[in-house]
Amino acid sequence: MTPAVPILLGLTIAALAEPASACTICHSTASADLRHQLLEHDPLRNAAALAAPIPILLAAILIAAREPRRRASGS
């Protein structure tokens, strides 16, 4: 066994022992307030506002990509 294996194993176990400590939404003094505010401020209305321009922008891409019908070439 190379020395890297136990080191990697140790790092993995250490990482597992601290679940999601990097997630400040999950674990921090401000986390409860943050979660509360995320849900309190009408997330559906916020999502609708965020998404509102997207259909128009996608429609612009579709229109730009649409090929004009080619006339059937007469023989």
């Binding site: 401000a30 307030d33 943050l34 505010q37 401020h41 916020n46 999502a47 506002a49």
Partner: peptide, 22 residues
């Protein structure tokens, strides 16, 4: 969301950060 949720606290800044991410 800064027009609807002004960035006046750490929590408000982080809520805006989530929506910036989306």
């Amino acid at each position: 969301l800064s027009g609807w949720l002004p960035v006046t606290s750490l929590a408000a800044a982080k809520v805006n950060m989530v929506w910036d991410g989306l």
